[in-house]
Design a protein around this nucleic acid. Sequence first.
DNA 1: ATTCTGACGTGGG
DNA 2: CCCCACGCCAGAA
Length: 109
Amino acid sequence: MATEGFFEKVYEVAKCIPYGRVTSYGAIARYLGASGSARMVGWAMNGSGKDTDIPAHRVVNRKGLLTGKHHFSGTHLMQQLLESEGIVVVENQIQNFEKHFWDPMKELR
DNA sequence: ATTCTGACGTGGG
DNA sequence: CCCCACGCCAGAA
């Protein structure tokens, strides 16, 4: 099986995020066993949007804030994508974040 | 090699 | 909830 590299795992989990669902970097990091290296998850996402099929717009920080929207192409692209999936976003912050939250540890495991 | 920064998280106040 | 400080690992200057 793949999942040999830390980044690879991040990609796998990110790709497993269902439609209209969201998760946090820490949740993925914890699932990978790198609870303290949540930053690396975001760094791994750095490759997303280039040649990876990772919906990074579904990954936000623990506050449900679209901290990485600045890394996307446009300015509101990330927000538009989320809203397009039925997620309400106001001021870069996801409303009902808990409701849309998808925990890889619980759902995927 | 050193230093800083970074799409984060947690703990204490 | 907010703010401050520390930890974390990787990459760039």
